[in-house]
């Protein structure tokens, strides 16, 4: 996924050497003031961006009565974790966690395995019709899955799979963009190692499994994190295909909490926090891969 930029090398070399001190020295006081002011604006906006998150945390530890004070205040008269335990008794959140974990882990594993194998074949094998197959897969990137919900539902209904894990998981597996990412990655890996192995009699499967796949760790990491986050967050399809409360994933389940009745502001915010926790964890642990992954999909 690394983009080959012809000037990268000299750029790194000169950046290390000269640095960018020269342009700054030229700046007069007005320029400096302007730059500070602009930076200040961006810092302020970044803080504004965090306000909804802070307000969510704040509300989640209020008592329900404290949430209906006008005007809204940040004070927490009675700091309480009551809403967090209430979420588990009022909703099936525990079950939704389990469902989300099952769905996302299986969907991610299946996506990574199938897409990496396909990307490997498209990069390494020569066979008739390869260009055609690759073209078809690339065209699939343009298919919006949201426009296919009706035939998908009908198809899975016909085999009696609606409201099972199969119905929620399987349609999430084919991800053409992941094939593209893996193919690009394998294209950039030198084939000599595999050639040597194949001369020694290793099968295609062995050279893929022992050499190519282990080498593609960074692509695997990026695709896994992306697929996992996307699958964990996916709303529309799980919402349609899991009809009973006990089969819902977190987004679909939380969707039912949105339209709940009565004063449950604190409870809703507590459920928002709980639903987001695994993702925040993934984000903090895999921030670099996520950021590189975004850049990779972008600069293809």
């Amino acid at each position: 996924m690394a983009v080959s930029v012809p000037w990268r090398r000299d750029h790194a070399a000169t950046a290390a050497g000269s640095g960018q001190v020269a342009p700054r020295a030229r700046e007069d006081w007005r320029g400096r003031l302007f730059r500070r002011a602009v930076t200040g604006v961006v810092i302020a906006l970044a803080l504004v961006w965090l306000v909804p998150v802070a307000w969510t945390l704040d509300t989640s530890v209020k008592s329900e009565n404290a949430t209906i004070i006008i005007p809204a205040t940040w004070n927490i008269p009675q700091f309480t974790f009551g809403s967090y335990s209430a979420v588990f008794s009022a909703t099936a959140l525990g079950r939704w966690y389990l469902n989300s974990a099952i769905v996302s882990v299986i969907a991610t594993a299946a996506t990574v395995i199938t897409a990496s194998m396909a990307g490997y074949a498209l990069s390494r094998h020569r066979f008739r019709g390869k260009t055609l197959v690759y073209g078809c897969i690339l065209a699939g990137i343009m298919i919006p899955p949201q426009a296919l919900i009706i035939p998908l539902f009908r198809e899975l209904q016909a085999v009696g799979a609606i409201d099972t894990y199969w119905a929620v998981i399987l349609p999430q597996v084919p991800t053409p963009i992941a094939v593209f990412i893996f193919k690009k990655f394998f294209d950039g890996v030198p084939v000599e190692l595999e050639q040597a192995a194949r001369v020694d009699g290793a099968s295609w499967w062995a050279s893929y499994l022992r050499i190519a796949f282990p080498l593609s760790r960074s692509a695997v990491a990026a695709v896994s994190i992306f697929t996992f986050v996307w699958s964990w967050n996916n709303f529309l399809w799980p919402f349609l295909s899991a009809t009973s409360t006990s089969m819902m994933t977190i987004p679909a389940g939380i969707g039912t909490v949105v339209s709940g009745v009565g004063i449950m502001n604190a409870l809703q915010m507590a459920s928002a926090v709980l639903a987001s926790l695994p993702l925040v964890l993934v984000f903090l642990l895999g921030q670099r891969q996520i950021v590189e992954g975004v850049a990779g999909t972008g600069l293809k």
Binding site: P52, T56, W232, G255, V257
Partner: peptide
């Protein structure tokens, strides 16, 4: 970037 990784259902609740 933090808001981007949150599910739409959570965004809507908030």
């Amino acid at each position: 970037f933090l808001p981007y990784i949150l599910p739409s259902a959570v965004i809507s609740l908030i």
